[in-house]
Simulated scan of single mutants.
Amino acid sequence: MRLSKSIFALTATLSLAFTGCQQVVKPAATTPTLSETPSDQNQAGTATAPSNQFNLQGKIGVKTPKQSGSAFFTWQQDHEDFDIQLSGILGIGKTIIEGKSGEVTLNSSKTGLIQAESPEELLERATGWVAPITDIVSWVQARPATTDAKIAKDDADRISKIEEDGWTVDLSYNDKETLPNKLILKQALESGAENRVTMVIQNR
């Protein structure tokens, strides 16, 4: 089930920074190697249907035609409440993004406390980054965020690729694990360039 927009847009670590004067190329209507997501099928392949409740630690990197950067993260998700902490972002210091009871806030030593309607907007204001965190909540659990997604699976029947909301996501797994340890998110731009987010999950 898709999470509330006001809370999980949060993933976008970079919001509208990518779209300022760049046009996003919409994916083709059909992709032979991908299939439509069945509404009555377990979307996580062979994994047990996941819930929106997890703890993650790892590193995230963002690269755009104009800038690049990386940060270490811890992410605690409890249904529609979340707490994301980023450290190591150049020029901004430790950043805390929280969503509780419909309120999304960002706090860092450089920006102070910021409130907005979505996490994407918060992070875009603070760092200039953009990433589809609303959808990432589902993607890190090896499932698409909506029934409009197109997916591909590997030989172990795990989701290995998702095309959704203008992004292509490649998922990698360790051995026989059913949840991904690495995600590469790519958003094609009209100029032929792309926005890329690389997320490495070190601990769950």
Score class of each variant (00 low, 15 high):
M1F: 06
M1D: 05
M1A: 11
R2Y: 12
L3G: 15
L3T: 14
S4Y: 05
S6N: 13
S6F: 09
S6Y: 13
I7A: 12
L10F: 15
L10E: 11
L10I: 12
T11N: 07
T11G: 15
S15M: 00
A17N: 07
C21N: 13
Q23A: 15
V24L: 11
V24E: 08
T31Y: 02
T31V: 07
T33Y: 06
S35D: 07
T37K: 11
P38A: 00
S39C: 02
N42C: 02
P50I: 05
S51Y: 04
S51N: 11
N52M: 12
F54E: 03
N55A: 09
Q57R: 10
Q57W: 08
I60T: 10
G61F: 02
K63C: 03
T64M: 11
P65Q: 08
K66Y: 13
G69N: 04
F72H: 15
Q76T: 14
D78Q: 15
H79C: 07
E80R: 09
E80A: 10
F82V: 05
I84Q: 04
I84C: 06
L86A: 05
I89N: 05
I89L: 15
I89R: 10
L90S: 14
G93N: 05
G93I: 05
T95D: 07
T95C: 10
I96S: 14
G99Y: 02
S101Y: 11
G102N: 14
G102S: 07
G102W: 07
E103N: 12
V104L: 04
V104N: 02
T105F: 06
T105A: 07
L106C: 02
S109G: 14
S109W: 10
K110T: 12
T111L: 06
L113I: 15
I114R: 12
Q115V: 10
S118H: 15
L123M: 09
T127K: 03
G128Y: 03
V130L: 11
A131K: 02
P132D: 10
D135F: 08
I136F: 10
V140C: 07
V140F: 05
Q141M: 12
R143G: 00
T146L: 05
A152V: 01
D154K: 11
D154F: 09
D155Y: 07
D155N: 08
R158T: 03
I159F: 00
I159L: 07
E164K: 01
W167K: 05
L171C: 04
Y173T: 01
N174Y: 06
E177M: 09
T178F: 01
L179G: 00
N181G: 03
K182P: 02
L185E: 01
L189G: 05
L189E: 03
E190S: 14
G192D: 07
A193H: 08
V197N: 02
Q202A: 10
R204D: 04
